[in-house]
Simulated assay, not measured.
Amino acid sequence: MHILVCEFVTGGGMPPDTAIPASLAREGNLMLHALLADLLEVPGVEVTVTRDARLPPLASPVRSITITDPRESWSLWEDLARQADGVWPIAPETDGALERFSRTVEVTGRHLLNSRADAVAVASSKAATAALLAAAGLPVVPVWRVRAVVADGPPGNGPWVVKPDDGAGCIDTRLIRDHADWRGWLAEADRSGFVVQPFQPGTPASLSMLCRDGRAWPLTANRQNVSLSGGRFSYGGGIVGGMALSPALTDLAQGVAVALPGLFGCVGVDVIVGPDGPTIIEVNPRLTTSSVGMRRATGLNVAAAVLDLSRDPPIPPPPVTRIEPILLTLEG
């Protein structure tokens, strides 16, 4: 089986006229290498990747195609997808990148080893995701589009969290303490593409799971290292498998899969765990950074499990019988 792996940041997706941020390149490389290590252990699998010429070449034994002009990346990715049996995109939801990848692969008729485009379209919008999950009766932090509350401000007196509706990670995520802070933030720039949520106290965490056709197989619950400095949030990694996979979290995973049946393969759900249980922040319809420690934490070859799930009929992943917490840091 020939698989095309497209990691957006390191594989040609970044603008040609600016340097690739070192932190994004590091995170992308970590996810890419973890996925390649798993794929290369699967008998009969051959892998092609693309690589931005501004980054060091890969040492992995894969076919690597260097991209010298990122403006040509999308046409090249489509051509390469047509030559592959399956395509595994690793891309942010921002600016519709992951949805575009998914639709491109669906048009080619090749196996999309990620969530369907319709599910990605919903999950790429924090407002749309919250509305869907709330309608399904799941505990989710409310989300308001900034343009809908810009005149009077969001409900309550704060604090709130603001972020891009299609953002990934903690990019441009800020804490707004009160209405004066809100007005100052609005005056800084165009905020029409942002959303606002009430600040939810508790422990930042994520669920890593596999999905297909409205069913979820939870793998680990992960503690997240989210820090706040100068009113800005940042994500620095966490502990994969650092939290017990409680019945409440397992039920949450199943509820998300039922509400978004187009989710497939690796999926992450960001939650806040408080005294009353977990509350959903957002759904990441793709491989997430926690995948970097998944093999060591669980012993499971996640890539092999996803390939088995893509079969007809699907082969469910084996149960995770042991979890060893793995510290994951994105620094240096």
Rank of each mutant, 00 (worst) to 15 (best):
H2V: 11
L4P: 01
V5A: 04
V9G: 02
T10C: 14
T10G: 07
P15M: 12
P16F: 09
P16Q: 11
T18H: 03
I20A: 03
I20S: 05
A22W: 07
L24H: 11
L24V: 10
L24Q: 11
A25E: 02
E27R: 02
L30A: 12
L30H: 06
H33D: 06
L36P: 10
L36I: 13
D38L: 08
L39E: 07
V49D: 04
D52S: 05
R54Q: 12
R54Y: 09
P56A: 03
P56C: 02
L58S: 03
S60D: 15
S60N: 01
S64T: 08
I65T: 07
I65G: 06
I65K: 01
I65F: 08
T66V: 14
D69E: 12
W77S: 00
E78K: 04
A81N: 04
R82M: 02
W88Y: 14
P89K: 06
P89Q: 06
I90R: 06
I90G: 06
G96I: 04
A97M: 14
R100E: 13
T104V: 03
R110F: 04
H111T: 13
L112C: 02
S115H: 11
D118F: 03
A121G: 06
S125E: 11
K126N: 07
A128C: 13
T129D: 11
T129M: 08
A130T: 11
A131G: 07
A134G: 13
A136T: 09
V140C: 12
V140E: 09
V150M: 03
V150A: 13
G153C: 01
V162N: 00
D166P: 03
G167L: 09
R177I: 01
H179A: 02
H179G: 00
H179E: 00
D190E: 10
R191Q: 10
V195W: 04
V196M: 00
Q197F: 07
Q200F: 07
G202F: 15
G202C: 15
T203L: 15
L207R: 09
S208R: 01
G214Q: 03
P218W: 10
L219C: 06
T220S: 05
N225Y: 11
G231Y: 01
Y235A: 09
G237W: 06
G238C: 14
V240H: 02
V240C: 04
M243F: 04
M243L: 14
S246M: 02
S246A: 09
A248W: 15
A248K: 14
L252I: 15
A253Y: 05
V256Q: 13
P261V: 03
F264C: 01
G268M: 11
G268F: 10
V269N: 08
D270W: 03
V271H: 12
V273D: 15
D276H: 15
G277K: 15
G277M: 14
T279A: 15
I280K: 08
I280T: 15
E282G: 13
R286A: 08
R286E: 09
L287T: 13
R296L: 02
G299C: 08
N301H: 09
V302T: 12
V302P: 01
L307F: 13
L309Y: 07
D312M: 11
D312H: 12
P313M: 01
P314F: 10
V320Q: 00
I323N: 00
P325S: 02
L327M: 07
E331Y: 08
